[in-house]
Design a protein around this nucleic acid. Structure first.
Lengths: 237, 237
DNA sequence: CACTATAAGTTGTCAGACAACTCTAGGCTA
DNA sequence: TAGCCTAGAGTTGTCTGACAACTTATAGTG
């Protein structure tokens, strides 16, 4: 088995990456291809899969580097809290960037989740969460106009929609979060400064107030490794 | 922007795949490369990322095909139930294959999660869940010897460790599940018949009985799209 | 010292070729 | 006729060599 160059190559490459410490540069492609006994084309093909996993990063003209992980933020899923609150609780510094607040027309997906008609005007809040300067999460919240308007937000709005609503006195009750895994789309990849198709943990959730009205439709994309989400499950059925 | 062939190509390829119905074959690589105005090497590089996302499947000598999804299994995460139970509740047929039960020495990771010493003998149960004949989940349970021994399992054991323990009368209490996203390792990729690096939803969880003893360390890998896991989060902090 | 031009090294892309594999159509045999 | 076998066309997998685009360090220049 493993008679195919591509598969054998992946094993060798994985070992090489594993024993190379974070931030170090790998040998150049021509050198590495000769070392591993394959052509440069096949080597590049295999490297693409490791880049997709976020294990390495290639930069034209510079080289290929092994990327490392930092301390993770850990949180239970039962309680809904903003990433800012989570970070404060764990005494970790996170920053926010690429904040964008704009009024858009609801697409089919968004309209269905907010229980609105398609093309209804909604407010869309996007931002990137960073730790150590590196993007680790991309968040997109969409809210009906009667819940939040663009002028409601203060000039120094720091980006947590949940914290803002709570601070304003809104009576929120629960959130229904769906968890999944996806490859990064072009938009998400650009925001997170990763490659399209890279592995991401994905939540899409609706936030309800005490009357049962959907007040927020939220999409969250997390680069694996930086966040640890857990949930306590009770035995039953 | 998008001045690089690779990025432009991904946009074009995504559109092509989107408008191609499930199971259909894409044009051959030489033809497609000419249509899209890039070399075959660059086209293959871009295709690798879509293959990683599970959107297409390439078969040597046969062609490249668009893959489609089937109905999804949906479950709340608060309640721990086996996939078999979940499928029965939703009236969906799932089958089990590649069942492997073997006694192994606990590695560091496993020992820590089961609160055992390294190299302690433990029982490892692996199996693949399929719907419609296609692999959709890969499950690995590891249990201490004093909880489950290889001879305890009946000849017709159908694969759900949780159901077996419950049926035996074990008093289980809760499970702590960590949710993440990863690229498939070589072992997992082989079991799920996908490519190494493909996007997977990943749970790793510990199961506790009523005395607080860890009785099961479980790793679960799900191909996205076939399962929908959700959790209700209460507002608070 | 600051700035610029140069050169070496690296990844990105291209072109063409052949190998390995799949599938089909036609011919052969029983 | 039914079944098996084989040859061929078509497809993806891999290789070779080359050049373009980009980064970085170096040496030179004001």
């Amino acid at each position: 088995m493993s008679n195919f160059p591509f598969q054998r190559l992946q094993v060798d490459l994985a070992a090489l990456i594993a024993r190379t410490s974070s931030g170090q540069r790998l040998p150049s492609e021509p050198v590495l291809a000769k070392q591993l006994g394959v052509s440069r084309a096949t080597l590049r093909d295999a490297m693409r899969t490791f880049e997709t996993q976020g294990l390495i990063r290639r930069r034209q003209g510079s080289g290929t580097f092994v990327v490392g992980k930092v301390q993770a933020l850990d949180s239970g899923l039962e309680v809904l809290e903003s990433l800012e609150t989570m970070a404060k609780r764990l005494n970790l510094a996170i920053t926010l960037s690429n904040l964008s607040v704009e009024q858009v027309a609801a697409d089919a997906d968004c309209a269905a989740n907010l229980n609105l008609a398609v093309d209804t005007s909604v407010l869309c809040v996007r931002r990137v969460i960073r730790t150590d300067g590196r993007p680790v999460a991309y968040l997109v919240d969409t809210l009906p106009e009667d819940v939040l308007q663009i002028d409601d937000l203060p000039a120094d709005f720091h980006g947590s929609v949940l914290d803002f609503l709570l601070g304003r006195g809104d009576t929120l009750k629960t959130s229904r979060a769906n968890v999944s895994a996806i490859g990064a789309t072009a938009e998400v990849a650009k925001a997170l400064e990763i490659q399209r198709g890279d592995v991401l943990l994905h939540f899409y959730s609706q936030l309800y107030d005490e009357t049962g009205k959907a007040v927020d439709y939220s999409l969250s994309y997390f680069i694996p490794g930086y966040f640890h989400f857990h949930v306590v499950r009770r035995v039953g059925g």
